[in-house]
Design a protein around this nucleic acid. Structure first.
Lengths: 231, 231
DNA sequence: TCTCCTATCTATACAGTGTCAAGTTGCTCC
DNA sequence: GGAGCAACTTGACACTGTATAGATAGGAGA
């Protein structure tokens, strides 16, 4: 095994290139966005040759996959924290995690875009699969708890297979509306409506009302009221 | 003005390079996806040098903007046709246009991704702005008609500024859930739930139920029932 | 009909990209 | 103290988008 002492480089070997590359990637994403992201630029910032990262990440997709894994876990952390805060203050946990999703994405749009397929990723990577499943699991648990009228999801592992669950459509509804609003906002699709002030105004003006609508529409009574609409 | 006779090329000048480039772009998007899209490959298929398209589109973003404009109009056409069909058969127009949005995206995922910001576009392009506004206008009209209990939106021009409208959150809810579900489905985020059979199963299994939920949640009564949830 | 204008297209070049192969360095363990 | 090996550099390759300069041809005006 090679040197793994501290960060920075003081010789031929870097010391912790893997982490340095991830840090550089985050910085490049923040400064230049997904479109301006380059493996060589990250290597440059890490003070290393262009071919060096290959040993740690395989290729560009490998580096982006590592960033996406971080992004998923960041999303999970933010949602868990928001849910805990909501419980403490008597707020709605489901609305809180949806808003946390939105705010996390808005805080780091570049990373969020990497997570959600704007660049090629290694979808077989087990670490990213774990992180993705964790984030989805939070969404599933909170949606179910909300619909069951519980204060919070019960502890314990989640069922691994949820595709056949009867409340699957409700779970997808929550994810879809949150993800859709987030994506449209980040991608500037609302700019022609409210100007290009970065979306902060949009978030403050409409997301509470949006979440209110979503959460209201998801209450058990509303879900059971079959009004017979179909396309 | 130079030659504008027929398609194909029989000499130094192509004849209709602009259209040929767009056709080639659609083909490349269908075959290789957004990630594998290249200006040079499109030029190759059009039988033209790499620098030729610059005269018609300026640069890569210009070509993609033309494709995005087509994509917006395709979306609008599909939604209008679906709404008309729904009216004829007594179905719900709003659910019909949401499903049309989904199906259009699923039929040409590459183009849909171009429309919604997976590559850099020229957002100032007036043609694309027109096409985008048209698609959004359909959504606005149909959502309002649905909430007002009308059979169809009244004819006539739409108000150009809708940001301050009282029903803006409801309109965004419809767009967000439809766009979110579409994006997640196309990007393969549901694959780990139902396998990678292309999303067709997902669409058939869940989207009717999803639309039912959405449309039910949007009925005037539900929207007015303020249950007091906030994040 | 001839000439010129101008849009269109080609050829070439350039900086930059991701990735590969081969060589170099230096830590670690026997 | 070598041996082994992971980590890194160097150099090369086939690409990319785009800029520039020159070639071509269709049509308008004389």
């Amino acid at each position: 095994m090679a040197a793994k002492r501290g960060a920075g480089r003081d010789g031929y070997h870097h010391g912790d290139l893997r982490q340095a590359m991830i840090d550089a990637a985050e910085a490049v994403l923040a400064e230049r966005g997904v479109g301006g992201f380059t493996l060589r630029e990250c290597a440059r910032r890490a003070g290393v040759s262009a071919a060096a990262p290959a040993h740690h990440f395989g290729n560009l997709a490998g580096l982006l996959t590592a960033v996406a894994t971080l992004g998923f876990d960041d999303l999970s952390d933010a949602m868990e924290a928001a849910a805990a805060r909501a419980s403490a203050t008597g707020g709605c946990r489901l609305a809180a995690i949806c808003r946390a999703y939105l705010e996390t994405a808005l805080a780091r749009p570049g990373r969020f875009r990497v997570v959600f397929g704007r660049r090629e990723l290694d979808k077989e990577d087990p670490e990213m699969q774990r992180a993705g499943a964790r984030a989805f699991g939070i969404l599933v648990a909170e949606t179910r708890a909300h619909r069951a009228g519980l204060a919070a999801p019960p502890p314990g592992p989640l069922p691994s297979e949820t595709a056949k669950a009867p409340d699957f459509a409700e779970i997808l509804l929550v994810w879809s509306v949150t993800h859709g609003f987030t994506t449209l906002l980040i991608d500037g699709q609302f700019d022609f409506l409210v100007g290009e002030d970065g979306g902060g105004a949009m978030l403050d003006l409409f997301s509470p009302r949006l979440m209110q609508l979503l959460v209201a529409g998801l209450a058990p009574e509303a879900a059971l009221a079959n009004r017979g609409h179909d396309g």
